[in-house]
Amino acid sequence: MKVLIFTIATAFLITACEKDITTPPKPNETELITTCILTLTDSANASNVVKATFRDPDGEGGNAATQFDSIRLKANTTYNTQIVLLDESKSPADTISKEILKEQNDHQFFFNNTTGLQIIYADKDTNTPSLPVGLSTIWRTTSPSAGTVTVILKHQPGTKKGNQADGDTDIELKYNTVIR
């Protein structure tokens, strides 16, 4: 009988150990992309720079995005476009795009644009066959028009073959775009 009570008491004590509930983890200590900055530089005129930023400092859920710019481009112009991804919830901000470049065999940007805009991939990964990553691209505009460019970043570990349907979506941003 004593043994029984002792066993039971021990069982209760063992299970009574708990994590401290009054010190919760800070959310978003895990990885996050808060900011996506497109920098478009006119290939004929380096002083003509267009920036379009999406910024949601606390990530998905919580507060709404604080900034979501339209892309305003000139007609019949060629732009060298760079994408920078940041995690601004950290201090200093983490440049996620460097990580993407490092793991370029597993990531790819896709651009779904309405007519009037042509996007050419400029970078290539080290895969065989080599496939674009999309961090630096060339955008060629034609006649004045308005529409959207959807920037999609897919994570395709081991399955990257240039197919947009594969993998997980890390970014899907539909930028309003105006060509004048």
Binding site: I33, T34, C36, F54, D56, G59, E60, G61, A64, A65, F68, T169, D170, I171, E172, L173, K174
Partner: peptide, 9 residues
């Protein structure tokens, strides 16, 4: 729908 960096939810 809520707009996030990963699209609308």
């Amino acid at each position: 729908a809520t707009l996030t960096i990963r699209g609308a939810f």
